[in-house]
Simulated scan of single mutants.
Amino acid sequence: MTQDNQGKKTAGVDGKKALRPNQRLKLVKELAFKGYKAKALRRVWIPKPGRDEKRGLGIPTIKDRVMQALVKSALEP
């Protein structure tokens, strides 16, 4: 049994959680241009298991997640 990633639908600093198909097509066209710069991450502090300490978690925007996936697929064999 696999554990589902609870944070994959968390909004970044842009406030968006998901895109409709027509928004996805628009995003692909936007990413085709050179000079892409990532936005700031949304920082959330989550508790460490079994401790009182917290650790920082950076949540990127959907656009940044798409760029990460594109770069990853280009670099993987």
Rank of each mutant, 00 (worst) to 15 (best):
M1A: 15
T2M: 07
T2F: 12
Q3K: 14
D4K: 14
D4Q: 14
N5R: 07
N5I: 05
Q6R: 15
Q6W: 13
G7V: 05
K8Y: 03
K8D: 08
T10Q: 13
T10V: 10
T10D: 11
T10R: 13
A11Q: 12
G12M: 10
G12C: 01
G12A: 03
V13A: 09
V13F: 02
D14P: 00
D14R: 04
D14T: 01
K16L: 14
K16G: 08
K17C: 13
A18H: 13
L19Q: 06
L19W: 03
L19I: 03
R20N: 08
R20G: 07
R20A: 14
P21Y: 12
N22P: 04
Q23S: 03
Q23H: 09
Q23T: 08
R24Y: 11
L25I: 08
K26M: 06
L27H: 03
L27V: 09
V28A: 10
K29Q: 09
K29I: 02
K29H: 06
E30K: 12
E30D: 07
L31T: 02
F33E: 06
F33Q: 15
G35D: 07
G35M: 02
G35W: 00
Y36T: 09
Y36V: 10
Y36P: 07
K37V: 12
A38D: 07
K39T: 13
K39G: 07
A40C: 10
A40L: 13
R42P: 01
R43Y: 07
R43E: 04
R43M: 10
R43W: 03
R43V: 08
V44K: 11
V44L: 12
I46Q: 05
P47D: 01
P47H: 06
K48S: 10
K48E: 15
K48R: 15
P49K: 15
G50V: 09
G50L: 14
G50F: 08
R51T: 15
D52E: 13
K54F: 15
G56V: 02
G56P: 02
L57S: 02
L57G: 06
G58L: 01
G58K: 01
I59F: 04
I59Y: 05
P60H: 02
P60V: 00
P60M: 01
T61D: 00
I62F: 01
I62H: 03
I62V: 10
I62E: 05
K63L: 09
K63R: 13
K63M: 09
D64H: 08
R65Q: 00
V66W: 06
V66K: 01
M67G: 02
Q68S: 02
A69H: 02
A69E: 05
A69Y: 00
A69S: 04
A69M: 00
L70A: 05
L70H: 00
V71A: 07
K72H: 08
K72E: 09
S73E: 12
L75V: 05
E76M: 14
P77M: 09
P77K: 12
